[in-house]
Design a protein around this nucleic acid. Structure first.
Length: 426
RNA sequence: GGAUGGGUGGCAGAGCGGUUGAAUGCACCGGUCUUGAAAACCGGCAGUCGCGAAAGCGGCUCGUGGGUUCAAAUCCCACCCCAUCCGCCA
């Protein structure tokens, strides 16, 4: 959520931003409502003040007659207040609705436009693989190696669910250990998080449960939903928290399952593990002072790069264009790994993404900080980044490390956790 | 699932219809004292909204929403959350 004051004072800027973001939020209408809101607020305050004075004077009234007159005054004033408050609530509700639908501001360097406008800003250290054979995709490789059971997944839970088997299980555990170890070395606090969260927490993080277009699974008869990412729980963990400035930045890393309905995504890249309803993810999350967030964003990106360079997977980094940013993001970098088995001759596929949400989530979640000796509070900045999303990482590993005989080499960095160098066909 | 207790400022914890936005303690900030520190003492210290260039002024907020009243942290209703014990269970 943006600062209402800022929006009211910068209608043109915000309108323009909304246009770049593909949001149809009616900024002008908001500004008009907010003007009205302030005026009614001022009127209400004045009446309340009068009513309060009347109340106090009753306790010290000279006689009964005066007391009764005063009571009548008080009654009348309170009625007026209550009428104004009704209008105020109505106006606030409408303007809040518009405000909440507005996306965050956009980093000045982020490219403007749709998906195609994204800019490649970096490449990983690993070159694209050159195969002397036609590379398979992860589904075929998995079949040879006995790694997945999609049929059983579909039978048990429907299309988009799967069982990992044998070495795939070890691979997933190895990836988690690899990621967590690296982050522990970078002073992250590691957590496993709830896989469910209250709807209020989802909303605070910028996710919309229970709408017609929701990507969120909800639990009927409760206010709980399955989380789409640990970003929700890690951010939610600090709901209404007021930090001391010297506690920041705070870096968390959370392991959770992630559940996504992927509504409307059928038919497009749905083969295998690429787009699934459930996967496991190690997520990074940071709370920072405003002036620290850009550097932290770089740091999170750097860690993502280090993780995938360390795995020996080729990738490129994308500076996501304005129209493709989620609502809360001020700027977003995606890591796209090379997936040789995708499409006709290999394609880039998103494996991680890191966003600087500035104060957008913090405002809704009421996560603030105070500086010693200073009155008042300020909103922290929040950032998130994927360390490793298991399903996508497994695709990238299998497809890049495959060999002519159908076996798959284990990335050097994972050998200690896997206890083997190669996955061999069964 | 059952029973009980409870939700008040950064924390702990009083208050249970009328100068209480809230005692007290801790923490924190400033000062006195001290070579320095500690202790002691003095002073300050909630958030938020509105008006204002600022100083400041005013409103609202004691889990949430409603009700009673001139007046509610205090009374009534509903809901939410938390803790403990019992049951079940990995």
């Amino acid at each position: 959520m943006l600062d209402r004051r800022f929006v009211a004072d910068n209608v043109d800027l915000v309108t323009n931003n909304c246009r770049n973001r593909g949001s149809s939020a009616d900024v002008a209408r908001f500004a008009e409502l907010d003007r009205l809101r302030r005026q009614i607020q001022a009127d209400t305050d004045r009446l309340n003040q009068q009513a309060g004075q009347v109340s106090k004077s009753i306790a010290t009234a000279a006689d009964n007659a005066e007391r009764e007159t005063r009571k009548a005054d008080g009654r009348r004033l309170r009625e007026e207040v209550s009428a104004l408050e009704g209008r105020l609530a109505e106006i606030t509700r409408e303007s809040d609705e518009i405000l909440r639908a507005m996306p965050n501001l956009t980093h000045p360097q982020a490219p403007v436009g749709g998906e195609d406008a994204a800019i490649e800003i970096r490449r990983g250290t690993t070159p694209l693989p050159a195969f002397a054979f036609k590379p398979l995709d992860h589904v075929d490789l998995g079949a040879k190696l006995g790694l997945f059971d999609f049929d059983a997944g579909a039978k048990v839970a429907g299309h988009g669910f799967y069982f990992l088997k044998n070495d795939a299980v070890l691979l997933e555990m190895a990836l988690q250990k690899y990621a967590v170890d690296l982050l522990l070395g970078e002073n992250f606090t590691v957590l496993t998080t709830p896989d469910l969260a209250r709807d209020t927490i989802l909303e605070g993080t910028g996710f919309m449960p229970r709408g017609p277009e929701t990507q969120i699974y909800s639990i009927t008869g409760s206010d709980l939903s399955l989380v789409a990412t640990a970003e929700i729980t890690l951010g939610g963990a600090m709901h209404e928290r007021i930090f001391e400035a010297d506690e920041l930045p705070l870096k968390l890393c959370g392991i959770s399952h992630c559940f996504r309905t992927e509504a409307g995504a059928h038919g497009r890249a749905t083969r295998g593990l690429y787009r699934v309803h459930q996967f496991t993810k190690v997520e990074m999350f940071a709370f920072t002072l405003p002036e620290q967030s850009e550097a932290m964003h770089e740091q999170l990106l750097e860690l993502e790069c280090r993780l995938f360079d360390g795995l020996g997977i080729p990738y490129r980094v994308i500076d996501t264009a304005s129209g493709d940013l989620g609502g809360p993001a001020y700027r977003k970098f995606d890591l796209e790994a090379w997936m040789p088995g995708r499409g006709e001759k290999g394609e880039w596929g998103e494996v991680t993404s890191t966003s600087n949400c500035t104060d957008y989530q913090a405002r809704r979640l009421a996560i603030r900080f105070k500086k010693p000796g200073e009155k008042g509070t300020h909103f922290v900045h929040t950032l998130n980044g994927t360390a490793i999303a298991m399903s996508r990482a497994v695709i990238a590993i299998l497809e890049n490390y495959q060999q002519a005989d159908g076996s798959v080499r284990v990335p050097e960095a994972l050998v200690p956790w896997m206890g083997k160098q190669t996955l061999v066909p069964r």
